[in-house]
Design a protein around this nucleic acid. Structure first.
Length: 281
DNA sequence: ATGGCCCATTTTATGGGA
């Protein structure tokens, strides 16, 4: 399986970019974030003509996530257990859920396309929402893997966290001042490791940005940040044979401000049966 | 001079993005 994640920043504006990329790169599963539309507004036809089935989750013009797949999709979910909601002036347990998660089983792999809340500023209610959302994601992930430790599980998407100082090439994002780099956000990101998932791209690609702001010539100056990740359970990580960050997708007409991140998975090479020897051809 | 963008919307302002 060749699995990609991409914050597309409006699928209606960039549908040809998304489909062209998927076809050109031979992607089996494309997880999208920020589709910025409702399911009935999603441009399904170009995907279907290219052989992809799409499951989309969107409630309004904000957020929105989807999974496009050439392989059969089952067990679609549009929120994880405990996922909190948010609305202006409407914090708390009864706040409405946003369209920030869609999960599905695809060829034995559980894939979640995630769009983590931005946080806005350190003193904003949205920041507390972001930390709560991440803590619930950690708990849901831990529970899912406790119930099925051998599950190949992929949490992919825009995490809106810059894990390491070297992932921040944007001088506008300042440690101690800005969101995305606070100790609490980084702790929430690394706490996902305790739930059983790790960044499977980092070992193969130690350096590289996935987002450059549209403003102030950030891309030509290479003042980007690394915030888009593929986190995998042990069974998934053991199957990774390659990874790539598609920096060229930031170029050209009407790019998204994010670029795709791709991982190659080969489960045939994984010996996950303790009683049987590996069979070599 | 130290800024310069882009998206969607019951659009000509506003909310959101990181």
């Amino acid at each position: 399986m060749r699995l990609a994640t991409w914050n597309i920043n409006s699928i209606r504006t960039r549908v040809s970019r998304a489909v062209d990329f998927a076809v050109r790169e031979d992607i089996d599963v494309l997880a999208l974030q920020e589709i910025k539309c409702k399911p009935e507004q999603f441009p399904y036809a170009p995907f279907e003509e290219a052989g992809y089935h799409v499951e989309a989750h969107g409630l309004n013009q904000w957020n929105g996530v989807a999974i496009a797949s050439r392989l059969p999709i089952t067990d679609v979910e549009t929120s994880f257990a405990g996922m909190p909601g948010f609305a202006k002036g409407h914090e708390g347990p009864d706040a409405p859920l946003e369209a920030r998660a869609i999960g599905a089983m695809i060829d034995g792999v559980k894939v979640w396309s995630l769009y983590v809340p931005n946080g806005r500023s350190l003193d904003d209610p949205h920041y507390r929402y972001k930390l709560h959302w991440l803590d619930e994601l950690r708990q849901a992930t831990a529970a899912e893997l406790a119930a099925n430790p051998e599950l190949p599980l992929a949490l992919v998407g825009d995490f809106n966290i810059i894990p390491f100082p070297e992932d921040n090439g944007d001088p506008a994002i300042v440690e101690g001042v800005s969101t995305h780099v606070s100790p609490e956000e980084r702790a929430a990101f690394f706490a996902l490791e305790s739930a059983g998932v790790t960044d499977v791209v980092r070992p193969l690609i130690p350096e590289g940005f996935t987002y450059w702001d549209y403003q102030r010539l950030k891309f030509p100056r290479n003042e980007g940040i690394r915030i888009d990740f593929v986190l995998g359970s042990r069974a998934l990580a053991d199957a990774v044979t390659g990874a790539s960050i598609h920096r060229n997708e930031r170029k050209g007409e009407q790019p998204s401000d994010h670029v795709p991140v791709v991982v190659d998975l080969d489960f045939a090479g994984t010996d996950d049966d303790d009683d049987m020897p590996m069979i070599f051809a």
